[in-house]
Design a protein around this nucleic acid. Structure first.
Lengths: 105, 105
DNA sequence: CGGCAATATAACTGGTCGGTAATGTGGTCG
DNA sequence: CGACCACATTACCGACCAGTTATATTGCCG
């Protein structure tokens, strides 16, 4: 496995390893498509900060965007992005309760 | 989605978002179980550096370990960890060649 | 064209993290 | 018990990054 590929994969994971970006993705998941202003309201992030995160997510193709007049509508780019989140969440859940029959008196 | 959960998920992604750690996981994937010294040789990472990464991966339950005399044998903890890597790689591959029928003369 | 709204970018800063060198710890063997 | 080996931990430093403030760009409208 060449170093360049590893770095690319790592970069993708790193992008998802930020609470603010996960919040953006999660918000977009609940609301199919949102403008930046709507995302500012829903996530509570600052406008400049949010915009910067969106550029990163877009550059890595985690989100799509389309222009409509003054507004730019963002949405999650593909299903795999959601699957990655779900898979990681499943890991955490399983770790939280490793033995269902345990908890003795 | 509460902030605490988001941070936990982000932390997991962040841990995988480092070339050195992905190299460790990938090396462990090829060789079912390895000692720290073997990992030093195979990954080319420094011993202290490697040991630190291993502690992080172990704390997040990405790897398991067992003691055997002087040696500590490390291995990947579960299949989901591998699935996460594969899913992210698949994303990258698909992005690299978005339209198979393209490339016109 | 002038002003305004929505979004993007630039410059800056504090905090965090990866790599390394030095040291500590636990276990084995003679 | 003392030297040695495998591994872990500490302390430190340079690089990178998230957040903020200020400013620039883009597109609409009157």
């Amino acid at each position: 496995m060449p170093e360049t590929v590893l770095s690319q994969v790592a970069e993708c994971f790193r992008l998802m390893g930020e609470p603010a970006r996960l919040r953006i993705l999660n918000t977009l998941r609940d609301n199919r498509e949102l403008t930046v202003t709507q995302l500012v309201e829903l996530t509570g992030l600052g406008q400049a900060n949010l915009s910067k995160h969106l550029q990163l997510l877009y550059a890595a193709a985690f989100v799509s965007r389309r222009r409509e007049g003054l507004y730019v509508w963002y949405s999650i780019a593909d299903q795999e992005t959601i699957e990655l989140c779900d898979l990681m969440c499943a890991r955490l859940d399983r770790e939280a309760e490793p033995s269902p029959q345990a908890s003795p008196a």
